[in-house]
Simulated scan of single mutants.
Amino acid sequence: MQMPSQQLLACACGQVRLTVTGSPIATVECCCDSCRRAGVQLQSRPGAPEVLGPHGETLFVMHRKDRVSIDAGHSLLSALRPWTQGGSRRVLARCCNTPLFLEFSGGHWLSLYGLLWPASARPAVEMRTMVGDLPDSSALPNDVPNLKTRSLCFYARLMKAWIAMGLRSPRIEIAGDPHG
């Protein structure tokens, strides 16, 4: 399916709105321990949507940071850091507890939660990563590659996007949360 050049996304209540331009770097279902633990925490918040799929996977649509704009509700963003180690933060809309994206410190991309897209416009999953972290990965369907960790192809896509951005890593400021 051809992706539109621009997509308008919003939290569940519509107060936080994003625009995504261009095609994603990749669309993945992550099965790592960190995403599964964070998914449980995120979806247990009042009014929050389901984050985890039936096998404990989290759907992410990865986009270059320079192709994602926060058009409304920036003051409603809140960073969640479920554990102190690691350089990642999950950002959600405080108004309705909708998870918006996962961001890595110094990263040039955002892993946008797939639940932001209506099912009819959601990019197709290309691969599952970190299936080696699952207690039983044999239950996963074989519809896309089920990668034990991350592949060279996965990292090559990230590198290609970073080069296209001039090796820049734009910052997203969130009140009360310094993030390098």
Rank of each mutant, 00 (worst) to 15 (best):
C31T: 10
E103H: 13
G132R: 06
L140R: 04
G39Y: 05
P170F: 05
R157C: 11
G132K: 07
V28T: 10
L167S: 06
D177Q: 09
D133S: 13
G176E: 12
A93Y: 01
S151R: 10
T84Q: 13
C35N: 08
M62C: 12
G114I: 01
T19C: 08
A161V: 07
V61S: 05
L152A: 15
C35Y: 05
G176H: 06
T19L: 11
D133K: 02
S169F: 09
P46F: 11
C11L: 04
R122P: 01
I174R: 01
R67C: 07
A175S: 15
V61A: 03
H55Y: 14
C95A: 09
Q41F: 14
F104R: 12
V28S: 08
E50K: 15
V131C: 08
T21C: 12
P54R: 15
D136A: 06
S105I: 03
L18Q: 00
P46S: 11
T19D: 04
W162K: 15
T27E: 12
R67S: 03
R89G: 04
E29R: 11
T84H: 11
G86K: 06
G166I: 08
G86T: 10
Y155R: 09
L134M: 15
F154K: 03
V16A: 03
L42H: 06
T98K: 01
W83E: 13
A175T: 14
V28M: 07
S138C: 01
R67P: 00
M159T: 14
A79E: 03
V16I: 07
V144P: 00
V61D: 02
P46V: 13
S111I: 05
A121H: 14
A79F: 02
W162G: 04
A10R: 07
L116D: 01
P170H: 09
S5N: 14
S78L: 09
T129A: 06
G106A: 06
N97F: 02
L112N: 02
V61W: 01
H74W: 07
K65V: 10
A12F: 08
L42I: 07
G53Q: 10
Q6Y: 01
H108T: 06
G14L: 05
L52G: 05
R17L: 08
A175H: 13
V16D: 00
A12L: 11
W83V: 15
R128K: 08
R128M: 11
R64A: 09
W117N: 01
R36G: 00
V68N: 03
Q85V: 13
E50G: 07
N97S: 13
R45N: 07
L42C: 11
K148H: 12
A10C: 12
R94I: 03
C13W: 00
V16E: 00
Q15S: 13
G114N: 00
E57R: 10
M3I: 12
R90I: 12
E103G: 03
R94A: 14
R81G: 01
S78K: 12
S75G: 07
N97G: 03
L80R: 04
Q6K: 14
D33K: 12
N146L: 07
V40C: 11
D136Q: 09
S5I: 07
K65M: 12
T58Y: 03
P145G: 13
S137V: 09
E57P: 00
G56V: 03
S44A: 14
H74Y: 04
R37K: 15
A38V: 11
L18K: 00
V131G: 01
R17T: 10
R90Y: 09
F101N: 02
V40R: 14
C96N: 02
S23T: 12
